[in-house]
Every structure is written in structure tokens, then in C-alpha cells.
Design a protein around this nucleic acid. Structure first.
Lengths: 170, 170
DNA sequence: GTTAGCATGTAACAAGTTACATGATTAG
DNA sequence: CTAATCATGTAACTTGTTACATGCTAAC
């Protein structure tokens, strides 16, 4: 149930509406925890119901601005310090690798080539993102930068692995 | 809907019962595409219903052995060659990184330390697994080895990243 | 005979996706 | 005035998890 905690986390930075949060999920959080509009609004209603967040302002077009409550902050800290992440690795990319044997070798190598390309593009996209942001010294910046670095290293690793793997298939 | 394709893929190696497949999911496929007993049996029934697999034998204790049909093999190849994997990266581990700013620096570093430990353990577990298997030249071995190499590189990358990240938090 | 492991099935629930539905406000 | 964007909500469906339920067979 991490969507809940993603929302609490974002609201710990500043109050925001469902729509604001949706935009954040579409941009900075998209690579880490994608969420849909319907999911976000539903979860916000639940969070408000259980008192972890509260409506602090109402604007035009029915806009509701939510803010974290003390209970919400406690829950966020609890999640960060007391619960262990589970490496739930479900990987579409890797699952296919197991079954490349049903293809002809050149088809299998095509698949790995597409992974190389995908990794390269992912790398470059993140590079551009890193360059386009002017990083401050605030929490969001420091930790956003760290997450981005992960993405860069991940894509570089995957690219090198796929190149190595293509050589293994004779 | 990759569970479907995972099952088709495993059945492309050899016919198997739900129970056999469950064991495979618990061991070799656990790191890549975990699946529960209930999911597997439900999906096998559906696959048999749509003609992608078929019951080839019945054994003691109601055991049903399934095999891939021609349609099933076609579907498997189609999945491998015509559909692109989506890097659906939903990562519990990384999501937390975004919000480490709500913790005290030493708590944040504790979290990164636990990631270092987790990565190290993951690496060693895979090393042991690699050593315990006697790799043949068959498809399963070649591609299983490639997937395992991914796991090794991934854990090494994550460990180095977490070490670097811990230094960034002052 | 009794325990471990083989073997399947289903129900209830939680989480995530897609699509539908509605309407207000602002900028050009 | 009209199109883009802001803004929320809900229904139907799919996928995944947890728990319950049942019974057979082989080995000791």
C-alpha cells in the first residue's frame, strides 16, 4: 500500500490538491511509482477519512487542498523507519529473457538490442532531466537527485548487461 | 498479463502440472515474476479454456499435466517478438528515497545502510545459487544464467549507489 | 498410523487500470 | 465564444494476495 505513503510524502513537502498531486505523479514520480487519476482521488478521500490528511482550503472548480496532519506525519515516519521495503522485482523485461530459447538466435539478439536501445534512451532522458532542473539544497532536490542517479546507474548497468548477454547467445 | 506468458514459457520447456509450476515459481522464477498458488491454478484453467494449453495426462491425487498447444506456442512467440516490455518500475525502495528528508540525517543513512545490506545479501544469495546449479548448454541454462547475471549486476549497482547516496546526506 | 508432501480449488479482499461522466474557469 | 486546462468523482474490470477447504499418497 505504497500509494498511500507516496501521497503522504508529497504532502509533507507542501499542501496540494488532487490535481497538483496527479501532475507530480505524471512527472517526477512517474518513473518510481506511477499512479492514475482515479487511484489518487480515491486514496485522498480515504486518507482524509482516516485523518492522516485534512482539507485546508477550497478553491475554484471544487478544488480541495489537502495538508498532512500530525497523524499523517507520524504514519509517514513510521513507514520510512519501521517497515522494510520488499524487493518485489516483478520484471517484464527479465521474464522474457528466460524464454528467449523458443526464438531463433537472431530474434533473441533483436530483443536484447531493443533493451540496449531502451536503456540508452532511458539514460539520455534522465540526463536531460538532470540538466533541466536547477538543483537546490532543499530536501526535495537532494533526494530527487539521489533517485535520479539511481536511474542513470540502473540504465547504464542494464545496457552493459544486455550487450554482454547478446554475446552469450550463439 | 505476464503470468499467462510465464506459464506458457515454462510449459514450452516441458509439460508440467500446476504443482510443478508452482515449485518453479517458488525457486527459479521467484526473483523475476513471483506468483501465488491460487493465481497459478486459476490461470491454468483459463489457459486451458482458451486452448493455449491442454491436459495431456492425469495422475494420482487429481494431478493434471498440461502441455503447450500450437496456439500456445504461437502466442508465446508473439509475446516475445511483437510486444514491447514496459519498464513499469514501481519501486518501493526508491519511493522511500524521495521522502528521506522528513527523517533526521542519521535515520536516512540508516535506511541506506539497510539497502547496502539488502543488496549485499541479494548478491551473495545469487552467487550461491549460481554455484549450486550445474549449468548445461540447454536453453533454460543459457538464459537462466543470463537472468542470474542481471541479478548480480543489479545488486552490485544498487550497493554502490547506496554507498554513494549515504555520502550525499550531510 | 501418522506425518510430510502432493495436489487442486475457491472466496474475499486489496490494488491498479480504463473508461465514463460532469462541469468550471481562463486565455486567446 | 470556444478551446485548453483545471478539477473531481465513480463504475467496471483485471490482477494479485491471503486464507480457507479438501483430500490423496508415500515413506517411516
Amino acid at each position: 500500500m505504497s500509494l498511500r505513503h507516496a501521497l503522504l510524502g508529497l504532502l509533507s513537502e507542501r499542501p496540494a490538491s488532487g490535481y497538483d498531486l496527479l501532475k507530480t505523479f505524471e512527472t517526477s514520480l512517474a518513473n518510481v511509482w506511477p499512479a492514475t487519476q482515479s487511484q489518487i482521488y480515491t486514496e485522498l478521500t480515504k486518507l482524509a477519512g482516516s485523518g492522516l490528511i485534512t482539507v485546508t482550503a477550497e478553491g475554484p472548480r471544487g478544488r480541495k487542498e489537502y495538508a498532512l496532519t500530525d497523524d499523517g506525519m507520524t504514519e509517514l515516519r513510521h513507514w520510512l523507519t519501521e517497515t522494510r521495503p520488499q524487493r518485489n522485482t516483478r520484471s517484464d523485461v527479465l521474464l522474457r529473457v528466460f524464454f528467449l530459447g523458443v526464438l531463433r538466435p537472431e530474434q533473441a539478439r533483436d530483443y536484447l538490442s531493443s533493451l540496449i536501445e531502451m536503456s540508452q534512451e532511458g539514460y539520455e532522458q534522465l540526463r536531460r532531466l538532470a540538466d533541466s532542473i536547477d538543483w537546490d539544497d532543499d530536501n526535495l532536490s537532494v533526494h530527487g537527485r539521489i533517485a535520479l542517479e539511481y536511474g542513470l546507474r540502473f540504465n547504464a548497468m542494464r545496457r552493459e548487461w544486455a550487450e554482454w548477454a547478446a554475446e552469450q547467445i550463439k
